[in-house]
């Protein structure tokens, strides 16, 4: 479970995250939705202790990220594609992460199989990878510790239609195993197909939160729900928030 409570963060004069609270539950896929610049990535970075929040608290599997003695075994995270040095081979990238977390080398082959990265690519330098292959390597890195919580930042970026369908089934499967899956995306129609719950964000704020079913039944689609809440939010002013459950 991921618990985010009243988190705020400013980057200079810009408020990237503004008093955001939500809970991502075990066994569910929670989508963090919003346009580019909505604050999704900033929030995810705060959740993982990469960025420091100005205020608020975050607990992942009951603790702050940095308080987990072996975080890779509890929380899997994918940011920025693969997160691998461009001149390193995929297997070497996964091996150093495994070494840092005390995970056996054999797990490297397992996760590369899990994400369907072609075997021929395992020993290729990462700079030769397509965007989709970067995403798969990033997901493999997240899965290395077989964690109970998974956080993916725009995982569908760069994937072709076949890859997107694979990802959908893959994320669903992870949640069905009882894991907590949090993903950020600006692809609302895609997220609608996989997420159990969503948090709609704009300009750093939560403008709506609820189950996918309730939002879709109320507005027809997540996209319609987003724009309806965005319009309402603009009307109400900066302090307004919408909640549909």
């Amino acid at each position: 479970m991921i618990e985010v409570e009243r988190v705020s963060k400013r980057h200079g004069s810009v408020t990237s995250v503004d008093n955001v609270s939500f809970v991502a539950r075990s066994g569910e896929v929670t989508g963090l939705l919003g346009p580019n610049g909505a604050g999704k990535s900033s929030l995810m970075r705060i959740i993982c202790d990469l960025d420091h929040a100005d205020s608020g608290t975050v607990r992942v599997a009951g603790r702050r990220y940095r308080d987990h003695p072996e975080p890779v075994r509890v929380i899997g995270v994918q940011f920025e594609g693969s997160g691998a040095h461009p001149s390193r081979r995929a297997v070497d990238h996964l091996r150093w992460v495994a070494a840092a977390a005390g995970i056996p080398r054999s797990r490297v082959d397992e996760v590369l199989h899990l994400v369907d990265l072609p075997r021929a690519a395992w020993r290729r330098r990462v700079h030769t990878y397509s965007l989709g292959m970067h995403q798969r390597l990033g997901i493999a890195t997240a899965l290395l510790g077989n964690p109970e919580v998974l956080i993916f930042d725009e995982p569908a970026n760069g994937l072709d239609p076949v890859g997107i369908r694979w990802l959908r089934g893959f994320l669903r499967g992870l949640a069905d195993e009882g894991r907590t899956v949090l993903l950020s995306s600006h692809l609302m129609s895609e997220t609608e197909l996989v997420a159990d719950g969503v948090v709609l964000m704009d300009r750093g704020r939560t403008i709506a939160e609820g189950t996918t079913t309730s939002l879709v039944s109320a507005y027809g689609s997540l996209e319609q729900a987003f724009f309806a809440h965005l319009a309402a939010d603009c009307q109400r002013g900066d302090d307004a928030r919408g909640t549909v459950r």
Binding site: V72, F79, E80, S82, G83, A84
Partner: peptide
């Protein structure tokens, strides 16, 4: 400085938050 390429700092700090 190799950490600055390909988002490796992110992976390093996620792996070793201390």
């Amino acid at each position: 400085s190799s950490e600055h390429h390909g988002g490796q700092w992110t992976t390093t700090v996620l792996t070793t938050p201390r």
